[in-house]
Design a binder for these strands. Structure first.
Length: 547
RNA sequence: GCGCCCAUAGCUCAGCUGGAUAGAGCAGCAGCCUUCUAAGCUGUAGGUCGCAGGUUCGAAUCCUGCUGGGCGCGCCA
């Protein structure tokens, strides 16, 4: 936080004099209540035991040092030993001037410079369109990738395209069956096949492309044709949906490449060589118990086909071998069980599994008119992500899916989402942005421009200071959201920024005010607009100039 | 049965590394537009932070147990 640096050096110096080691953290927080200063520290209380002194005594000693530090108006000790710092108002002018100079870079951080991170998200099987629930993975993953990028990391956004498993054969069988039906042949639809309307659509494409002669092809060849057509259609459909949410992946990693490259075989060989894989009942087992996990698991079925675990391990090894410093997986709660196995596998392969970070988001429930929406009851077939975007718009989809902590179950209120008024939290943020845009337009028409040389010292109103205070926490908030993988912290912060601006707007007239106050307020509005625009960009929501 | 997650205002949820009187939106009630966008603002009301212990100067936050809900525990992915 930007204000910390006006306090930390003096506190550190006082602590050093008391013989406290330099790595002792200096806890600083923004007091919740009025009358407790602008910044408070609990460091005196945390040191009471080690120093063997009363917290108030320690606090007093620190205060002596602090009182002579620049920009500090007064310091006092309160309660059990809180150190409450009140800044001279000029500190806020210094901070705002810096924020103004950062221009469009406000909120950026450099903590990740020099590090490469891979964020894998969406990764839905290419066996059909994305359903509405997939939206959470999409939004959370893309926001986390954005956060890394804003913190200076070199980010690769990756989609693990699961095109080698058994489910692709089921897709091919389903399409083949519809193909026969479409061409007038009588066949039974596979019991566990995919029933969506899109299967019929893909079958029609195959029929159109190859004519009825396709039925005369050998089954293997025809199935392959169906599989390819299905994969292509699903891939294109999924990408089109992601496009609507402004999500673009850098790498689409094909699962089948793990077989053609020999990566899967390499895992088998290494595990065997280390005595971590053994044959039983005709299958190959991964000796997870030896690695401390609850039970051994099959990695190659007796049919010779691998289970998903094997390519998953090979895939994660591949990501680490590509040299990423951090490998992030975004998973739904239904995938929790697979993670320990993969991590154990990566470690068994001799790679650093601590670079892997997993984000597990809980499930989503859609509510409409007070009732739970059944996925299967929408549009006759299923409630797709496209349907959801169609109903509430891409901005609302992205924001609603990240506005709650990933670890909690999300209730997606469709009525609230569709509301285009004051109840909808997305509009509250966008409205603040549009309001500022409007003022800046009018200012420009009058020939007013914000320059870095503007005199900010005239900003002394409570609401002005409060807004600057919120803005000063921008960088730190983004860093924390990134390090902790908490997208909702951005949503929460943006609400604070918008609220602080609306309060300021209500009390402080900008245009038509005497100079230099008009210019100073204009500068404050400009910085706020940049903060909102950047924050909205991080969560993938548009920042309209007009509403 | 085992593992992971969750439990905070009527509803949906915030709550930074434990901190001072627990925060916001919606719903409720009462107000504010001849002036930069009222998609805004102000006020009011609403709570044994699931329960019981423990650690601590201090616990919604950490630990243990319990209750209630979600997800998972396959030679499916």
């Amino acid at each position: 936080m930007m204000l910390h640096r006006f306090v930390e050096p003096a506190v550190r110096s006082a602590l050093t004099r008391m013989g406290v080691s330099a790595d002792h953290p200096i806890a600083l927080e923004t007091p919740r209540n009025a009358g407790q200063g602008d910044l408070a520290s609990t460091v005196a209380m945390s040191l009471a035991k080690t120093l063997g002194k009363a917290p108030k005594v320690i606090a007093e000693e620190i205060c002596t040092e602090l009182r002579s530090a620049p920009y500090i108006q007064h310091v006092d000790v309160a309660g059990p030993g809180f150190i409450n710092v009140t800044f001279d108002r000029s500190v806020y002018h210094v901070v705002l001037a810096e924020l103004l100079q950062q221009a469009d870079g406000i909120g950026r951080s450099s903590i990740g410079v020099g590090s490469r991170v891979n964020v894998e998200y969406v990764s839905a099987n290419p066996t059909g369109p994305l359903h509405a629930g997939h939206g959470r993975n999409c939004a959370v993953g893309d926001t986390i990738a954005n956060l890394y990028a804003w913190c200076g990391f070199n980010v690769t956004r990756e989609y693990y395209f699961n095109n080698a498993g058994n489910q692709m054969n089921k897709l091919a069988e389903s399409i083949d069956a519809r193909l026969h039906q479409h061409l007038g042949a009588d066949v039974e639809f596979p019991e566990d096949g995919y029933h969506g309307e899109y299967i019929t659509l893909i079958a029609q494409h195959v029929a159109d492309a190859h004519g009825s002669a396709v039925l005369d092809l050998p089954e293997v060849e025809r199935r392959d044709l169906c599989k390819k057509a299905g994969e292509q259609w699903c891939f294109a459909t999924i990408r089109a949906t992601l496009e609507k949410l402004t999500i673009h992946h850098d790498v689409y990693f094909n699962e089948d490449s793990l077989y053609t490259d020999g990566k899967v075989q390499q895992v088998i060989d290494t595990l065997r060589g280390n005595g971590l894989a053994y044959e039983k009942d005709g299958a190959l087992w991964f000796a997870l118990e030896q690695l401390g996990n609850p039970q051994d698991k099959v990695i190659v079925k007796s049919s010779g086909e691998p289970t998903y675990r094997l390519p998953d391990i090979a895939y994660h090894c591949d990501k680490l071998e590509r040299g990423f410093d951090v490998v992030v997986d975004i998973f739904g709660a239904d995938h929790i069980a697979t993670i320990p196995d993969v991590v154990a596998g990566v470690r068994a392969m001799g790679l650093d599994e601590t670079k892997i970070r997993t984000v597990i988001h809980q499930m989503v429930t859609f509510i409409e008119d007070g009732e739970v929406v059944k996925f299967s009851k929408r549009s006759g077939t299923s409630f797709t992500l496209d349907d959801l975007i169609e109903e509430v718009g891409a901005d609302v989809v992205r924001f609603f899916f990240i506005m709650r902590a990933v670890g909690t179950h999300l209730e997606f209120d469709l009525n609230l989402a569709k509301e285009e008024g004051d109840k909808n939290p997305v509009f509250y943020l966008q409205y603040a942005h549009a309001r500022i845009a409007s003022i800046l337009r009018k200012a420009a028409e009058q020939g007013l421009q914000v320059s870095d040389a503007v005199d900010l010292s005239v900003l002394v109103h409570d609401k002005e200071i409060a807004l600057i205070d919120v803005l000063s926490r921008y960088g730190g908030t983004i860093e924390r959201a990134c390090v902790n993988l908490e997208p909702q912290a951005v949503a929460e912060y943006l609400r604070e920024v918008a609220a602080a601006y609306h309060h300021f707007y209500h009390d402080c007239r900008i245009l038509g005010t005497e100079e230099p106050l008009q210019s100073a307020r204009l500068a404050l509005a400009l910085v706020t607009q940049r903060a909102l625009r950047n924050g909205l960009q991080i969560v993938g929501v548009s920042a309209p100039d007009v509403m």
